[in-house]
Design a protein around this nucleic acid. Structure first.
Length: 137
DNA sequence: TTTCTAACA
DNA sequence: TGTTAGGA
């Protein structure tokens, strides 16, 4: 089917369908004319895209997750391999957060030490305001 | 009539 | 995302 029919059947605008392709979420074939040709399965695929998008997932992640997700009565069930990969990625993120937190503790110690030095005359002009996300911590 | 790309609002 | 221009 061409883009017009898919748009009608999914209630998603042609503009959006082209955008999804641009984001790597859909890969329609092309006619010699350049017209996009979608498969029947793309109707469900578009519904899945809408589901993931409304769940707040960025299109870049959806492009990776989509080819590895099956639908079970309205529920999205990721395949085992994907979960394993995402879990690994999550672990890597946790490790980096720990490293960054350690770095922050070191910096805080230095900053605190500097602030206890006498500066009662006039605050240094080049000292930037406290831009930490949570200054109380 | 339908679709295409590109670009602006 | 919607819309529009200019083509095929």
């Amino acid at each position: 089917m061409r883009i017009g029919e898919l748009a009608r059947r999914t209630a998603v605008s042609e503009r959006l369908l082209r955008y999804y392709e641009e984001q790597g979420l859909l890969r329609p074939a092309r006619l010699p004319s350049g017209y996009r040709v979608y498969a029947e399965s793309d109707v469900d695929q578009v519904r899945r895209i809408r589901t993931l998008l409304s769940a707040g997932l960025p299109t870049t992640l959806i492009a990776q997750v989509l080819p590895c997700v099956r639908e079970d009565g309205g529920r999205l069930v990721p395949c085992a391999g994907l979960v394993a990969d995402l879990s690994r990625e999550r672990a890597r993120i946790d490790a980096r957060i720990d490293d960054l937190a350690a770095s922050r503790r070191v910096l805080d110690a230095v900053i605190t030490a500097g602030e206890t030095e006498p500066y009662d005359i006039a605050p240094p002009r080049d000292r930037p305001a406290d831009r930490r996300a949570n200054p109380t911590r």
